[in-house]
Design a protein around this nucleic acid. Structure first.
Lengths: 111, 111
DNA sequence: TTTCTTTATCGTAATATTGCAATATATATT
DNA sequence: AATATATATTGCAATATTACGATAAAGAAA
């Protein structure tokens, strides 16, 4: 026990959960926000923006990258990280679909 | 160390992270999917739908409830759980805003 | 080549999460 | 009251996450 039983769930459900999990930490949300603010890339300035150590930030960047939320390229001396719009769009599409289904359904309990 | 340093981040960032975290497990996504499918409430049938024990499911329901993703009411012998549309809408709005900002920005790197 | 800068990885400690058996609680039914 | 049904809580073991110091790696600049 202790490990998530991903094998029992559909790949669609696992895919959404993996994306949501990656966004499930304030540091990672803050990284995405920062990437959006600087309109493109992180080149060495993210460490100064967040109240976390460099190894911790590197770890969070890795988690975001492995989930497909961001993508990175070596850019000379530093690394260029930016948001992968497709991943964000998947989340938007999923929650958007949920929202619209909720609007059309008659939730006649728990109100 | 080991605990998330939530106190260093804005309440907006923490709020999104908390919602995303709640959706960051396949069992919890599956619960939400099931709630949507039955168009309203869970009344005792969720345990038969998921490949997890009753205590584990109860735990996931509690996590979803504490995050505000679902809301529950005692309904006679059983419990009536249903989705809180506001929480889903917050997620949709957040990722929607990210998406549209990404569309208008010129991501001239990492392409 | 040496040094500087930037990012990644390793090792480790603290904490959190996941999962379940056992048990408790609470209401319905008989 | 006794029993049945549905959900929650407790206690525990296994695993994962978070965070950071120390160190490594890799390219830039001198």
């Amino acid at each position: 026990m202790g490990a998530t039983k991903t094998e029992h769930f559909s790949s669609k459900v696992n895919a959404i959960a993996a994306l949501a999990k990656a966004m499930g930490h304030p540091a990672r949300v803050a990284i995405v926000e920062h990437l959006l603010k600087v309109n493109g890339c992180i080149c060495n300035d993210i460490v100064n923006e967040l109240p976390l150590s460099q190894p911790t930030i590197s770890q969070h960047l890795k988690a975001l990258k492995e989930a497909g939320i961001i993508q990175g390229e070596v850019e000379g001396n530093s690394i260029c990280y930016c948001i992968n719009p497709k991943a964000i769009h998947k989340l938007e599409a999923y929650f958007g679909k949920l929202s619209s289904k909720l609007n059309t359904s008659n939730l006649n309990c728990c109100t």
